[in-house]
Design a protein around this nucleic acid. Structure first.
Lengths: 232, 232
DNA sequence: CGGTATCCGCAAAGATACTG
DNA sequence: CAGTATCTTTGCGGATACCG
């Protein structure tokens, strides 16, 4: 161990926070972790989800995250043939931190530039972050959720919820929605009943499944922007 | 609001995590927050605690953190005259996140370069991060803790612990130690009794106060480095 | 002393073309 | 599709000079 100096531009501070930033503080690194939270991804899929990263930078980040034990390269499961990147156990320990960071940062989203890009994958990650821990489902339930990025599987049991990319092997319900419609329902701007009758959402012919799905999540009220004492 | 585009090089992603990084993802920003967690600081003190930051960069970071509502400039309390920077309520909401990040990163500290710098301030921040929530003190207690960076006050009541820079108005005990000695006691490498008799620590003439102080914290075992499947 | 502005050298990031 | 090589641009570190 201690091959060499893994950190190219280390803060060189004997401090856990500074060391954490040596590992995941470079530009893009935390977003790579975010995208891997929903499951393994190939190099190209990572690049596609991180507009303007530049493949050389992505390579450098993955290399550092690999040598620091956050991410692992693995042969892709059979049909695919190829390589995927996934979080190691150490990397998965970042999940609660990244989700807390996302909840915190969501209150500054009113400052985003107008040209900001949308991925349904990120909405799904936000669902995980805003999962309502005080809500318990009556019986274990699996949803297939189809959005613009493709299918996701949502599994709930008691007060636990897990979400991952890809369709579940067997779903109790299949929900399909335009991203923006799902988002508006999650933040309480749109009634599921209205969306269903408008045809913006389909719920497997079973409207209750959509309501049950939405009940798992507690997105904050929309007015939550930060007020900065307005300057001169 | 929405003065302009506050983020010079925004990720421009509609995602809470990406937005959080737009705010505090620049180099040094999180370390500024870390240093402000223990109390307000002046520009010079911040610069001194962040070796090699460069004053222009520090100015730029503070400016962004101020416009985003994370940090506030305030006139220093009376004796001093001048300006101090402190966390806003929004900025303080980062504290649990930064501490969790520090706990996570502390397990990669074996990768730090050999020339890494030590500040007792960071050890104190680690104490806060590794505070043992399952430990309750019998009665409310205040310690004055003297380290190389100066005095800190540690206040414990029931299972709550708060730490800030500066001496407390009234302390139940005054503990004084060389940084490294305190660290070794916290990670269990050095018995407080032995340190006291060696004179490496003084405890106000009351040895029990030191033991009580150490009992507040649960630093992880030292072997906690991450194993990366050793390559080639 | 606290803070800002400016210049320079360098290293990292963005963009894209190219190769196994 | 996965990644490397190359070129340009931008941000950072360091020094220094300048205002309050």
């Amino acid at each position: 161990m201690q091959d060499d100096a893994p950190f190219t531009r280390s803060y060189a501070q004997v401090c856990g926070v500074a060391t954490a930033l040596d590992v995941i503080g470079d530009r893009w690194s935390i977003l790579i972790v975010r995208d891997l939270m929903l499951g393994p991804l190939r190099f190209g899929d990572l690049a596609a989800g991180l507009p303007s990263i530049g493949t050389n930078t992505l390579t450098a980040r993955l290399k550092l995250l690999e040598t620091t034990g956050v991410v692992a390269r693995r042969a892709a499961p059979l049909p695919d043939r190829g390589t995927v990147y996934e979080l190691t156990p150490y990397g998965r320990e970042l999940e609660p931190i990244v989700m807390a960071l996302g909840r915190w940062g969501s209150r500054s989203m009113d400052r985003l530039p107008a040209n900001a890009v949308w991925h349904s994958r990120w909405l799904v990650a936000a669902m995980l972050a805003f999962h309502d821990e005080s809500h318990a489902v009556a019986k274990p339930t699996t949803w297939a959720l189809w959005l613009s990025d493709g299918p996701f599987s949502v599994v709930a049991e008691a007060t636990q919820v897990s979400i991952s990319a890809g369709a579940p092997a067997k779903a109790d319900a299949v929900v399909s929605a335009r991203d923006e419609v799902l988002h508006r329902m999650l933040i309480g701007q749109l009634e599921p009943g209205a969306a269903l009758s408008d045809g913006d959402v389909t719920s497997d012919g079973n409207p209750a499944a959509l309501v049950d799905l939405l009940a798992l999540f507690a997105f904050p009220p929309v007015d939550s922007a930060i007020d900065t004492a307005s300057a001169p």
